[in-house]
Design a binder for these strands. Structure first.
Length: 576
DNA sequence: GTTCTTTGCGCG
DNA sequence: AAAGCGCGCAAAGAAC
């Protein structure tokens, strides 16, 4: 069918007919232009045709459900609005006097319902029939929800909520594209690292030789040949029998003890972690065709950070980073931000003194220069303690020093903590709000105010209140930092897509990314871009420019340094 | 037998 | 020099 003008927005949802989709097209004024249905098998071609025009904004229930099959068919879309993700933002925000009404229809299902395997092309009916209601009567529901969300964004006093929703949705596009592209992973390098640390791959069920040797040494040292270092309760008993009076078997507590068992035990724990979390079975389960493909859960953390599902994507140990290795003819652009959170705090609180300390590559050195503390180490503890709410120890003791030198920054986090302790809700700079306290929390506070309350009730309530204060204190900083990162990602994606196709790379990243630089990994404040060799410098510049653009968008008119540590390398190991 | 909770540790 | 925030996952042990 032919439209008079290219559509500005397209709401895409399942049709009332099986195996069909509905599309409702809107013009730039928000008036409906037309609607039509197509067979599921024709969707990729239809999306591709409409995308080729003016890149409309695709409005869908949830990109996690819709986008992977399109990517599998070789289709990318430029702009989107994820109703499910934005529902959570616009429902919980305290930036609006009348946020959108909550609905169980807009709660994210278990991420594993949409499996790691690419679902059969557009056969997504099982996925959302999990929710209540008729699975084929979707399009009207999407239209109604989108109308509510648009109205809510218009009610906002400024454009910040709209920016947040746009960034959240673009983040979801990036997330699916990264899953589709995968993180290039060298099985050979990973296996070599495992053998170097653990010895040859053991028979199934057996301990690797290095761990077995250490277990024997631990047994001899404790004079207990039956000790099982994998079992904390049994290990604890064995330690105490040997006269080592610890309360737990955790690393930091054992590290304080002077005893010959400590060294082999800590080494054993390190190796056991590598073996169980990222050993040969992890490799077999999660790496296929030299690609690691985690599922990213956009907005999966209350603060707006991403979570992940499958393979522990956000917890890959640094020791395995050398296994992240570019394809032949490609390279990696790796970038991370040094001390993102304190820089964000300086900017969001408009604390000029702290922004001055943040000038340059090392914020902690800047804090020393400001005169607040004597050494870099003190600066680090003091700053982290301020953002996390440390009250005791050297970290907490430095709080007053910081308050006198950076009053605005400290006032912001102190106020957030106070609000949280009082049971209130705090928000990020763009308007993502913290959860309300749960019923248990409120009940504990109520008990303490009861005339019959005893000292124990009051202590418990006080402690819970402080716990929540530390959470809200950190929420505003962590959440605003997550917003900076989201804008950074979106800017990187936008600028990478403006690069021309490379001439001559080996096309190994899948059809959509065969000749294109693409984001391959994101972890809170760092990115890895997989890039054809000839475009390495262009991609590095993109990542740098994107960071500056993100800073300007989030903190317009405020001068804050958010510098990158940026390198181009064949692998993501730190020293290569 | 299965599912739930706890412990410990990886990441930022 | 500390143990303050947010996560996911594996294994063991407890609970069913």
């Amino acid at each position: 069918m032919i439209e008079s003008a290219a559509p500005h927005e397209i709401v895409l949802g399942r049709s009332t007919r099986p195996d069909a989709w509905s599309l409702v097209l809107f013009d730039a004024q928000g008036s409906e232009q037309s609607r039509h249905e197509i067979a599921a098998s024709e969707l990729p071609v239809e999306v591709s045709r409409l995308e080729a025009g003016a890149s409309p904004r695709w409005v869908v229930r949830h990109l996690r459900e819709v986008y992977p099959p399109l990517l599998a068919a070789g289709i990318r879309i430029r702009r989107a609005h994820d109703l499910l993700l934005c529902h959570a933002i616009l429902r919980d925000t305290t930036s609006l006097a009348d946020p959108i009404p909550s609905s169980s229809r807009w709660v994210r299902a278990d991420p594993l319902v949409t499996t790691i395997e690419t679902p059969a092309l557009f056969d997504l009916h099982e996925v959302s029939s999990q929710g209540a209601g008729d699975p084929y009567a979707e399009i009207d529901e999407l239209l109604a929800e989108y109308a509510r969300q648009r109205a809510a964004q218009r009610r906002a006093p400024d454009g910040r909520l709209a920016l947040l929703c746009a960034a959240e949705s673009t983040g979801a596009l990036v997330a699916e594209e990264m899953t589709a592209a995968g993180l290039p992973w060298s099985t050979a390098v990973h296996e070599r690292l495992l053998v170097d640390a653990l010895g040859p791959r053991p028979a199934s069920g057996a301990r690797p030789i290095r761990m077995a040797e250490l277990a024997v040494a631990i047994g001899e040292s404790l004079e207990d040949s039956t000790v099982n270092p994998d079992s904390p309760p049994r290990l604890l008993k064995s330690l105490r029998r040997a006269g080592i009076l610890v309360d737990s078997t955790s690393r930091w507590e054992l590290g304080e003890i002077e005893h010959p068992v400590v060294e082999p035990l800590l080494t054993y724990k390190k190796l056991a972690r590598l073996f169980t979390a990222n050993g040969w079975s992890w490799l077999a389960e999660w790496v296929r065709e030299e690609r690691f493909r985690p599922i990213y859960l956009t907005g999966g953390v209350v603060t707006g950070r991403w979570a992940s599902s499958g393979g522990g994507a956000l917890q890959i140990p640094r020791s395995l980073r050398p296994a992240v290795r570019a394809d032949e003819g490609w390279t990696l652009v790796c970038a991370d931000v040094a001390q993102l959170e304190p820089r964000v705090l300086a900017a969001m609180s408009k604390d000029r003194a702290m922004a001055a300390a943040a000038r340059g590559a090392d914020l902690y050195e800047g804090v020393v220069r400001s005169g607040a503390v004597q050494t870099r180490q003190e600066a680090k503890y003091a700053v982290l303690g301020a953002m996390y709410g440390a009250t005791t120890g050297p970290s907490g003791q430095l709080g007053p020093r910081l308050r006198s030198v950076f009053p605005r920054a400290m006032a912001l986090v102190d106020a957030a903590a106070k609000t949280g302790e009082d049971g209130g809700v705090v928000s990020t700079l763009l308007g993502r709000s913290s959860p309300r306290p749960d019923a248990m929390w409120a009940a504990a506070q109520a008990r303490a105010s009861d005339p019959d309350a005893d000292g124990s009730d009051e202590r418990v309530a006080r402690s819970r209140a402080r716990d929540r204060g530390r959470f809200t204190r950190n929420f505003v900083v962590q959440g605003t930092a997550a917003e900076w990162s989201l804008l950074w990602l979106a800017e990187i994606r936008h600028r990478l897509s403006a690069l021309p196709d490379a001439h001559d790379p080996a096309p190994r990243s899948g059809p959509v990314f065969a000749r294109r630089a693409h984001l391959a990994f994101f972890l809170h404040d760092e990115v890895i871009v997989h890039v054809p060799l000839e475009q390495a410098d262009d991609a590095a510049r993109v990542v740098q420019d994107a960071a500056e653009a993100a800073t300007r968008r989030l903190f317009p008119g405020f001068d804050i340094d958010i510098p990158l540590d940026l390198r181009i390398a064949e692998d993501a190991g730190k020293d290569s």
